[in-house]
Amino acid sequence: MANLKDIRKRIGTIESIKQVTRAMKLVAAAKLRRAQSNMEQARPYAGRIHGVLNHLLPDIDRTTHDLLSMRPAKQKAFIILTSDRGLCGSFNSNILRQAESIIDTAGKENSKLICIGRKGYEYFGKRGYDVVEHYTDFWNELNFSHATKMARAITDRYLSGEFDDVRVIFNEFKNVAQQEIVEYHYLPLVLEDDAEEVNTDYLFEPSKDEVVKSLVPRHLNIQMWRFLLESYASEQAARMTSMEAATNNAGDLIDRLRLEYNKARQAAITTEILEVVSGAEALVE
């Protein structure tokens, strides 16, 4: 039978772990709410830009725009979004595993990596991948200027010919219990056809070409912002769920230990009574 004092000590330890995990869950929930409201706010802007671009692109000669024209994808680049910190369940391991298989299929030698988030940077850095750029330790102060900075750096590299095709691999936020890993074609720019309807007889000032030229970088910025927010929201949701599970497990463990503790205590009392009674009986005789 386990020692009473040991069990008491274990209960104490687990109790404090439970407090920590519960606090982490609450913090993650608050951060998730903030990320979700940011996502909400970005939607009208992203929707309009997408709509107007979608309307314009069929009329534009793609080959005259560097960011639109397709070129043979000899060098590929992958942007991988992970978190800086752990304790968020399988959030990072899932995306890292999937990203690695995507990159290996594309060919490790002609793939360059841009890692956003410490976990991805450490993972691919250690495994001999060509990580050309990384961004870490910014998630807590995440704001729109991070997105523009990253989008510009990536666009500059693309324009300089360092790579010909850019994909983004990130966790898309479905709901609190669900994230989905998505691969998105970032550059050259391709649009899906689900955009809002746009009026057809607009006057374009200064010209269609100029409007597109100014719109494409805006679109890339807002897309990057969306990736960051989606990934951040997913991370917080994953952390919330896993910390919730940890808190529940700690509760179960405490219940079990308490039962064991009571059993041990009763056994100890029974033994004591037996000793007293048999001692008394021995005296009578």
């Binding site: 107007v52 006057l203 000032e205 409007v211 719109l215």
Partner: peptide
């Protein structure tokens, strides 16, 4: 602030898209 200089808009303006 349009890219080719500032412009003014009043009600009833032609439908247009202008780079800023």
């Amino acid at each position: 602030p349009g890219v080719d200089g500032a412009f003014g808009v009043l009600a009833g303006h032609t439908e247009s898209i202008m780079a800023l």
